[in-house]
């Protein structure tokens, strides 16, 4: 359960979020809105990357602003650009890197990394230079590096913006198959099949919060 409690946020003088109150318990939740509407800022609060100027966020009762480490152990975050998320030269090493603090042996880390890669169509790529993967494969790798830690929640900030149509489709299928609670930030409305709830943001406020169909109808009218 992710709770936003009277959230307001400003970068310097500029107020970018006003009075956001949300209780997200659904398995598939999307944040939709125009550029600059505050989606990323809100999403980053879930794992403590951004601390709200006012109000409080709770993830399963824990406040990420105060217990960032504890929350980040349960919340994985996928960004738009895989090139800035992959920090190790090969796919296997990058996934294993996530397990550094786990106390597992190097062999066990490598074994788990290979298993996660195999599960997501990247078997045989463990020793492959990460920067030689295609854009779609890189984003899958970034996802694997998160999933290997078995988080309860996955927040994705426009994860398909840099992918072509076919890779986007594949990525959406992978996402649909995950057991985690997913919070997806997007302005690609085609990604929302099977979602339970869509929150529409506009200029830092929640302007619609509903099932996908009515929420998207509202959103389409909003953007004209």
């Amino acid at each position: 359960m992710i709770e936003f409690d009277g959230i307001g946020h400003a970068y310097g003088e500029r107020v970018v979020l006003h009075d956001v109150d949300l209780r997200l318990a659904e398995r598939r939740v999307a944040f939709v809105g125009a550029n600059g509407s505050g989606k990323s800022t809100l999403a980053r609060m879930v794992n403590g990357l951004v601390r709200p100027s006012s109000g409080r966020v709770l993830v399963d009762g824990i406040d990420p602003a105060r217990h960032g480490r504890k929350v980040r152990e349960r919340v994985g975050f996928l960004f738009t650009n895989p090139d800035s998320q992959i920090v190790m030269p090969t796919a296997g090493e990058d996934v294993a890197f996530s397990l550094r603090g786990s106390g597992l042996s190097a062999q066990e880390r490598a074994r788990r990394a290979a298993a996660v890669l195999a599960e997501h169509n990247l078997d045989g790529y463990a020793d492959h230079p990460a920067h030689h993967l295609s854009g779609g494969q890189k984003q899958l790798l970034a996802l694997c590096s998160i999933l290997v830690l078995e988080p309860d929640v996955l927040v994705c900030d426009e994860p398909t913006t840099l992918l072509d149509h076919r890779n986007t489709k594949h990525f959406v299928e992978v996402l649909a198959g995950l057991s985690q609670q997913v919070v997806l930030v997007t302005h690609d409305l085609d990604l929302l099949d099977g979602f339970d709830r869509v929150v529409v943001l506009d200029e830092g406020r929640v302007v619609a919060d509903d099932l996908p169909e009515p929420a998207l109808r509202f959103y389409r009218k909003l953007v004209g």
Partner: peptide
């Protein structure tokens, strides 16, 4: 920009936490 994004991604992967 890359450095910014990298820092953010590392933080999300728990880098500052250990």
């Amino acid at each position: 920009r890359h450095a910014d994004e990298l820092g953010e991604a590392l933080a999300a992967r728990g880098m500052g936490d250990r």
